[in-house]
Design a protein around this nucleic acid. Structure first.
Length: 212
DNA sequence: CAAGAGATCATCT
DNA sequence: GATGATCTCTTGA
């Protein structure tokens, strides 16, 4: 019996019969644990134009107001408000006048933290992704936070969305924990000593990360 | 392949 | 008024 009403058509065939939508307590764990455990899980986006699914291959952790790389280190503002709220909600922000980035809020209320989803391996809805991204090349569809949001039609309308609901969520298809790598986060040179923290996580050997 | 410029705007000073 | 958790394109070796 599939209580989750989400049969696992997305699985790569190596796992269980049914997918489990990650529940809120998953996101209430420590941010580093969430960032690591999201690798190998499946990001699902439902849209009127169709569904897109990708295997998460790269994440970054942004951990609390002391982390100078975290947007919330500048305090509680209209923009960062969502990171201070309950875990399992989307924090989507607009950057460089062009792109969106998708985060999922983690940990307890009033502890501002989130995991940035940096890259996925396209699995389902690939034609739709190609159309949105205006490229035919598979490894250019979602290999970066801005590209991913374009391929999955993620914009400010999803800011604050409940990631335990039906529009945007993450599934566990029972894939065994992949071998991972950690390294410094990308694009945070301004963050002083915090820029060295090895809080970027990748699936080892994946062709679909934003950079080696 | 590596390096650099430019695009463009919400947010915060 | 400055800047950024990015990307694409161009240039030049």
């Amino acid at each position: 019996m599939n209580l989750n009403n989400s049969s696992c058509a997305n699985c790569r065939g190596n796992s269980s019969d049914f997918a489990l939508k990650l529940p809120r307590p998953f996101y209430e764990q420590s941010t580093l644990d969430v960032a690591r455990q999201l690798l190998g899980k499946y990001l699902v986006r439902k849209h009127l134009d169709g569904m897109t699914v990708g295997r998460i291959v790269e994440t970054e952790a942004y951990v609390g107001s002391r982390d100078k790389a975290c947007h919330a280190s500048r305090g509680r503002t209209k923009r960062t408000e969502i990171m201070f709220g309950p875990a399992g909600h989307a924090y989507v922000y607009f950057i460089y006048g062009f792109y969106y980035c998708l985060n999922i809020v983690t940990e307890a209320v009033d502890y501002p933290s989130a995991v940035l989803i940096r890259a996925v391996e396209p699995l389902k809805g690939i034609d739709l992704m190609k159309e949105r991204r205006r490229t035919e090349r598979l490894h250019k569809l979602a290999s970066g936070p801005g590209k991913l949001c374009q391929a999955f039609a993620i914009d400010r309308s999803l800011n604050g969305a409940d990631v335990c609901a039906n529009l945007l969520y993450v599934e566990d298809c029972g894939e065994p924990a992949p071998k991972t790598l950690a390294g410094p986060r990308v694009g945070v040179d301004y963050a002083g000593k915090w820029k060295h923290k090895p809080w970027r996580f990748l699936i080892r050997g994946s062709e679909f990360v934003s950079r080696p």
